[in-house]
C-alpha cells in the first residue's frame, strides 16, 4: 500500500510542478508586455521611490486593474501579471485538495483547506486596511 501511495504522490507532484511553471511563464509574459509598454509610456519620467506613498487605488483593486488593462495602462498590465503570479501557489494548493481527495486522505484535505483558509483570510479580511 505504501508503494502505491508513493507513486500517486509523485504523479501529483509532477502535475503540480508543471502547473506552477506554466503559471510563472504566463505571469512573466504579461509583466514583460506591460514592462515594455511602461518604458514607452513613462521611460523618461523621474522616479519617486524615496518616500513611500502607496499605490493609487486603481492599482491595488482587482476590478479597477482590469478596467485599466483594457485601456492599455501599462502599470495595470504589470499588476495583472503580479496577480497571476501570486495566484500560482494558491492554484497549487487548490490542486492539492483535489489530489488528497482522490487519494482519500481526508486528514490532508482538512489540513490543505486550513492553509487555503489562512491565505483567503489574508486577502479578504481587510487586515490590510
Amino acid at each position: 500500500m505504501k508503494q502505491g501511495q508513493h507513486v500517486k504522490d509523485s504523479d501529483l507532484e509532477t502535475i503540480m510542478g508543471s502547473l506552477l511553471r506554466i503559471g510563472v511563464l504566463i505571469a512573466a509574459t504579461v509583466v514583460l508586455i506591460g514592462g515594455i509598454l511602461y518604458l514607452f509610456q513613462h521611460g523618461r519620467a523621474e522616479p519617486h521611490y524615496h518616500t513611500f506613498s502607496g499605490e493609487p487605488k486603481d492599482l491595488k483593486n482587482i476590478k479597477s486593474i482590469f478596467t485599466e488593462v483594457f485601456k492599455l495602462q501599462s502599470t495595470a498590465i504589470i499588476q495583472l501579471g503580479v496577480l497571476v503570479l501570486i495566484a500560482t501557489p494558491i492554484a497549487r494548493i487548490i490542486f492539492s485538495i483535489v489530489g488528497f481527495v482522490l487519494e482519500k486522505d481526508y486528514l490532508y484535505v482538512v489540513i490543505t483547506f486550513i492553509v487555503l483558509g489562512i491565505i483567503a483570510f489574508s486577502m479578504l479580511s481587510g487586515l490590510a486596511g
Partner: peptide, 11 residues
C-alpha cells in the same frame, strides 16, 4: 496583504 496595502509598485 502587501498588494492590498499598495506596497507592490509595478515600476
Amino acid at each position: 496583504v502587501y498588494f492590498e496595502r499598495g506596497y507592490i509598485d509595478p515600476g
